[in-house]
Amino acid sequence: MTNVLGISDVYLFILAGFLGFQLILRIPPLLHTPLMAATNAISGIALVGSIVIAGQNYSLVTNLLAFIAVTCSTINVVGGFIITDRILKMFKKEGKKKP
């Protein structure tokens, strides 16, 4: 909160958004469910923000709120990567034997 929003951050957001559009348009419908699971896992990066807040000993209220936030984001990160891998593992080409 001590930070002032720089114009470069807005650039970053817009350019990353364009990059995302280009990358994701190329993903076939076949993989749309794993894509959702994957972006879920990746957006669990909110964890890093939550960790910093949880580590600052400002007051019990902020600590508790951040604790819940860390828990939720961890669920998304760990759960998201596991389930994405589970889904992707199932996609097989013809002829390959069952695992």
Binding site: D9, L12, F13, A16, F18, L19, I24, S43, I45, V48
Partner: peptide, 19 residues
């Protein structure tokens, strides 16, 4: 990410949002 001035969150947020 904007609030915390955390660039990695801005980038992933933009990717996730685009998706």
């Amino acid at each position: 990410g904007f609030m915390l001035a955390n660039r990695i969150q801005i980038i992933t947020g933009a990717l996730d949002g685009a998706s």
